[in-house]
Nucleic acid binder design. Structure first.
Lengths: 249, 249
DNA sequence: GCTTGACCTTGTCGCAGCGTCAGGGTTTCT
DNA sequence: AGAAACCCTGACGCTGCGACAAGGTCAAGC
């Protein structure tokens, strides 16, 4: 048989057969005078074995090991390992799939968050915020929330989103207050009002959960991303909430 | 933030971030005087989006498309496509896993066929053959059966194995008869007896199902792989069964 | 001042399992 | 005789980074 025949017979491509030769899985058969490879039954038998093993999901080097082993002792080990591997893979895929289907039903039912697919918790929060008037601050806030969604470890996500739900009611006014500060100076008289309003919805302990300022990292970048007056308002709000927390304790 | 910080924040490696730069997924941020990249909040937001999407299983170019699209229209399409893909993958993996677990229980229960993992049908047949005395012909037959197991399409496998089950009863004697011909000449008187015995268990129509001789391919290789007298016996057996089939019709 | 260690930079190779050219020769059918 | 269908070797491509190499930079401790 020539390479095309044996390949078709066993159900692989000629290229794959050559590849197996190259990687030493299948010995090179004798050549005809014209240089063509000439295969016999034992090659087909071996190739079929290779195919069965690769179809199970073994890598080529594992196949080589199993074939070399000659006695099924090693095979069982490899198969067990493979079974575990497949179990893991299936779990991953199923999780992805479930996530995906919920996302898809959400997306088809109404809107999907423009920030891309997010955790169910955050999706609920964003849906609760609903349709707010056009607001740069709101947009920024949604982005930050989506970022936190990735940053915060899963265990704490629920708690965090709980806190946010408390603030959701006054979201519209807070956004308006902060938007008004977009072009204001840091000592604008409206900064104080915005800070108080914001502090009212912040949880008491928030100051200690945040890394101190100036230590680099996300917090500083966050403030740098806001307009000066906005940044001042948020900073003051956090300080207020922090002092209130200490007073309570 | 420097690259290590943003990477840790979002939960990827610095290498991945650079890779996203290279492939245009994430714009290069400004550099500090020393050449370090300096990231801001918007980069983190974008990177988090990328991570969410890749975690769903999208490829990087799909991520790019989705991000460029800016409106979720394309996203839904991509997600649907991905969902189908995942469904297929899961099916494949589950099938593999089931096959694997049956194989493993078989292997642990007693023996697994030395030919490697085979279809359940063939496994049953081989188990039925049981422990035969040491026989080169038996070994060759098992190899050929394992080959056929891969060659024959799934629909016909059951039928084929049925036929083989009919012959399993007389397997021991047939192997002995053929083994005896290993070093015999093609005109050895024992060829005739072996041919008759073999023909008795062959199905009537077999001659027409086989490709004609000399047409190349598996059949010729098969005969070439046998000793001359063995090959003569098998050929004659097939002819006998064929004539008997015609006579009956 | 000097070293150490933890960062950062660019650039390159490697990986699994083949698919897919490119650039040639052979066989076979018409 | 020409076209179609095979075969050969050799080389690059693909995915999503990991893992070097061969440096520069910065903060801390001696």
């Amino acid at each position: 048989m020539r390479i095309g025949e044996i390949a078709a017979l066993v159900g692989v491509t000629p290229r794959a057969v050559r590849h197996y030769h190259q990687s030493g899985l299948l010995p090179e058969p004798p050549r005809r005078p014209n240089g063509y490879r000439e295969y016999g039954v034992r090659d087909a038998v071996l190739l079929a074995r290779i195919r069965r093993l690769t179809e199970l999901g073994l890598g080529l080097d594992e196949v080589r090991d199993v074939l070399a082993d000659d006695e099924g002792r090693g095979l069982v080990e490899v198969l067990e390992e493979l079974a575990e591997d497949l179990a893991r893979q299936e779990a991953v895929i199923r999780a992805r799939r479930e996530h995906l289907t919920t996302l898809l039903t959400e997306a088809r039912a109404g809107r999907l968050p423009a920030e891309g697919p997010v955790s169910p918790e955050l999706a609920a929060l964003l849906a609760g915020l609903g349709e707010l008037p056009e607001s740069p601050m709101a947009a920024k806030d949604r982005e930050i929330l989506a970022l936190l969604d990735v940053v915060v470890p899963e265990e704490e996500r629920a708690r965090l989103m709980e806190l946010m739900h408390g603030a959701a009611g006054s979201a519209r006014e807070l956004y308006a207050l902060l938007d008004a500060l977009a072009d204001a100076a840091p000592d604008d008289p409206r900064v104080d009002g915005a800070a108080r309003a914001l502090a009212a919805v912040l949880p008491d302990g928030i100051a200690v959960e945040l890394p101190p300022e100036g230590s680099g990292g996300l917090a500083d970048s966050f403030f740098a991303d806001l307009a000066p007056a906005q940044s001042a308002a948020v900073r003051r709000a956090i300080r207020l909430a922090g002092e209130r927390g200490e007073g309570n304790r």
